Amino acid sequence: MPSSNFQSVLAADVGGTHARLGWVELPFDPSQAPRLLNHKRYRCADFNGLEFILQRFLADCHGSADAIAIACAGLRVGDRVISPNLPWALDLTALQTVSGELPLSISNDFEALARASRWLPSNARTLLCGKECGPGESRPILVLGPGTGLGAAIRVRVSAHHEHVIATEAGHAGYAPADQDEVALLAHLQGIHGHVATEALLSGPGLLRIYGAVCAMQQQAPKAHSPEAVSALAASGDDDCAMRAVRMFWDALGNVVGNLVLQTGCFGGVILAGGVLPNIDFGRAQSDFATRITAKGSMQPAMENVPIYQIEHGELAIVGAAMAFANRQ
């Protein structure tokens, strides 16, 4: 492709745990897919701020940028980004210094993932439940993912090569229990934290919270002290509390997915991403995940048709960050 047909964008997908950066060739023609070139992943906690990660990437992967595009977990309010899941505050002034005279775009990480999901091939997603949708699906689609927090965005198709994407902070809405076990779980966590956001349960740290609460309610000493250890214990079958925590996670996720579909009108489908689900996928079959999605009273017939997909999004949101920049031009 001739260089005049695309822009070179230094793009970053910044989550609570990792920052993924890469060079993206962004075509001016929206019918052409962006192309991700060199990319690297860095642990956010190893740096004192995003500006230092950008500088490190530029040293590791040389290139010439036409713009810098950052997709970050959190909500931008004026010159401030509210992002409680990052290990440091996002310093927009410092980022402007790094970008210099280059255009600088800031978007939500799940907005970016939702934008880039249009280029996801059908064989890169797994249908968990519901009915497969066709390539011409025009109803809104929800992109949701438990990671360090719980990200969510809505993608609305406008034409063959254009969508509106709405970033949300659904993960910070209050958690709503669906059975007596979850009522007890919520009461336990409210006694400790007060407000219990949905992402306080549906995230990596949330899995650990569920496990700790189950252990406390069953008067058992916890054997695991990280989300990874909880999932490993549950997979081994050697810890009843860990297995119950994983089942409760999937049950709660199903309830939240179903509620969000109804609240947002995303009957075109749901794409589940994030780093947590691949580690606990073994527990879904033993849970009521699919039943919780569809058990919505008179809406059950409609909910049974909603396709629920799972993906491993990898570097997809890096491309989405560049797409968000293009959308803001």
Results as ranks from 00 to 15, higher is better:
157 R>I: 01
142 L>W: 04
124 A>H: 14
123 N>Q: 14
127 L>G: 10
143 V>Y: 03
135 P>G: 02
154 I>K: 07
145 G>L: 06
153 A>D: 04
134 G>D: 13
128 L>H: 08
154 I>V: 15
134 G>E: 07
141 I>E: 14
119 W>E: 13
157 R>A: 06
144 L>Y: 11
130 G>D: 04
120 L>S: 07
141 I>L: 12
157 R>W: 01
147 G>L: 04
141 I>T: 13
151 G>C: 10
137 E>G: 06
158 V>I: 15
119 W>S: 11
126 T>K: 15
120 L>R: 09
119 W>I: 06
122 S>F: 10
161 H>C: 06
132 E>H: 11
122 S>V: 12
119 W>K: 02
120 L>M: 14
159 S>R: 00
131 K>R: 14
126 T>M: 12
149 G>D: 05
130 G>L: 04
154 I>L: 15
161 H>I: 01
119 W>M: 07
153 A>R: 05
160 A>T: 12
157 R>E: 03
125 R>C: 13
134 G>L: 09
136 G>P: 00
140 P>F: 05
127 L>N: 04
140 P>C: 09
125 R>A: 11
131 K>S: 12
132 E>P: 05
125 R>Q: 14
157 R>S: 12
162 H>T: 01
124 A>Y: 09
157 R>P: 03
152 A>N: 10
160 A>I: 03
127 L>P: 07
148 T>D: 08
125 R>V: 05
151 G>E: 08
123 N>T: 12
141 I>N: 01
152 A>R: 08
125 R>Y: 01
143 V>N: 05
159 S>M: 00
139 R>W: 02
132 E>Y: 02
149 G>I: 10
156 V>Y: 02
130 G>E: 08
139 R>Q: 12
162 H>A: 06
134 G>N: 10
152 A>F: 05
132 E>F: 11
126 T>Y: 08
135 P>L: 09
138 S>Y: 01
142 L>M: 13
137 E>M: 11
123 N>H: 15
148 T>L: 10
162 H>C: 02
150 L>A: 11
122 S>E: 12
162 H>F: 01
145 G>C: 08
136 G>N: 13
160 A>Y: 01
140 P>R: 07
132 E>C: 06
124 A>V: 02
160 A>Q: 14
127 L>T: 05
138 S>T: 14
121 P>D: 09
129 C>Q: 04
138 S>F: 02
125 R>H: 07
162 H>Y: 03
119 W>A: 13
127 L>D: 03
130 G>W: 05
121 P>Y: 05
141 I>V: 15
128 L>M: 13
148 T>C: 06
143 V>I: 14
131 K>Q: 15
127 L>R: 05
149 G>H: 07
147 G>V: 06
157 R>H: 09
136 G>M: 06
120 L>G: 10
137 E>I: 05
134 G>Y: 01
143 V>F: 02
156 V>N: 08
139 R>S: 13
131 K>H: 13
147 G>I: 07
142 L>C: 08
155 R>H: 01
146 P>S: 06
123 N>W: 12
128 L>Y: 03
121 P>H: 02
141 I>F: 04
150 L>V: 12
129 C>L: 03
163 E>R: 00
